[in-house]
Design a protein around this nucleic acid. Structure first.
Lengths: 230, 230
DNA sequence: GTTCGATGTAAATTCTTTGTAAAAAAAAAG
DNA sequence: CTTTTTTTTTACAAAGAATTTACATCGAAC
């Protein structure tokens, strides 16, 4: 009961069992409910840390279950739906779901999302939205699909975190970003460490971008910004 | 009994239940069979209007079941197979299947095909979109129809999973692919295992591609990508 | 100019990821 | 059913990165 328990609500027992198989492999305990009322009851008795909720349910549909749960708790909820047009409602109406997946779903992706939602400050739209696969500023081009950085025609070798940091900066050229913001953008919301870690990677990037027409400028007392030289 | 009944033959009960879930939603009645002999018996007793038949079966394999059914009936058959190379046999040897799908399959697509087969004058080859039957990158050529790999003129012997992994990489040359993505592409969404299984096959492929002009590069912290050497 | 917190950065440390051989398990062939 | 082959898992070494530390330096305010 409690700290590893996930409640899976679906009227199809198979869906519950599929989820159970994959989630238990990752150390979660899975409790199933086949109706909306059963779900509400199990939330009380089992104290789950997250609920996976199908929209289509007998007795009490997913919308209603979600509304009632949200009335008095912040239990993370991942919605499941078979219909694409429900997605807009989930996203648009701010029902309070933390994330959603369309059925039929990829079970490993479900596990990944459960973990993501359980991380502090997860922003689902960032996961679901397509990010551009290429950024350019000055004579620097960053390709996210190949994870390559080029200064003019010359490829530049950057490490994982340097790459992520550079992308974060390229997403907001000219804007001053605090170390906190950069940690959120490049490390994720659950990073647990010194803000000054950013400085070290900035230093590395500055060296590697020395030959380019852009640079990472210090905004004293604030953070950093990406600017064109001169 | 009869006019809406579909017989689903698969030794994996989950596959049957998945099909049942979706087919029943569309008004069909689903009868399951887990072995070839059970399938033949159920054809007599249940009089299905269509059979969905997995090739890999205990007792009597799908080929044999199909042959025996075809000996004295025109029952529409949709073949399921996990192996791409079986597809050639199904299509080429005119075994008598009306359509086929490779596993893992999209259940909604299965429903669509069931309906299509039941429509008169259905032409399956039009639905099974051609995927390229040949990929080449550097001096490596991969033929999906013959499942052969050549480095220049020299044939290279690769195992099934190595082949599938190589195809996945060849479909996205230069792109960084995570282990998850590679599992989805080469193993299927329902693979239930360690992501590091990918690494082992990558190591094997690297040895076999050592003499070629391409290689599988590690993208640290991310996954792998296929690139030309130098 | 002096002070003091903020920043730069090299080096040390710690942590993660990856390569790979070998064992185990599973699947295919006989 | 037994043998062979393939696939997956495991375990550990090695490589590679990320983070922290420590100290030098800088910049703003007075």
């Amino acid at each position: 009961m409690g700290k590893d328990t996930i409640l899976v609500v679906d009227d199809e027992r198979n869906i519950i069992e599929l989820a159970r198989m994959y989630l238990e492999k990752d150390g979660f305990t899975v409790v199933g409910a086949e109706t909306g009322t059963e779900a509400l009851r199990k939330i009380e008795t089992e104290q789950p840390i997250l609920m996976i909720l199908d929209l289509m349910l007998p007795e009490l549909d997913g919308w209603e279950v979600c509304r009632r749960v949200r009335a008095n708790s912040a239990l993370p909820i991942i919605m499941l739906t078979a219909r694409d047009d429900d997605v807009d409602k989930i996203v648009g109406l701010e029902l309070g779901a933390d994330d959603y997946m369309t059925k039929p779903y990829n079970p490993r992706e479900l596990v990944a999302r459960v973990k993501a939602v359980l991380r502090r400050g997860y922003h689902p739209q960032a996961e679901n939205a397509e990010q551009p696969e290429r950024y350019s500023f000055g004579n620097v081009v960053v390709s996210t699909d190949t994870r390559e950085v080029r200064v003019g025609e010359t490829p530049v070798d950057v490490r994982t975190k340097e790459f992520d940091l550079l992308v974060a900066l390229m997403e907001h050229p000219g804007k001053a970003l605090s170390r906190e913001q950069l940690l959120n953008l490049a490390w994720g919301f659950d990073f647990y460490g010194e803000t000054r870690t950013v400085d070290v990677h900035v230093a590395h990037l500055r060296k590697k971008l020395a030959v380019s027409t852009i640079t990472i400028e210090t905004v004293w007392g604030v953070g950093y910004k990406l600017v064109e030289k001169d």
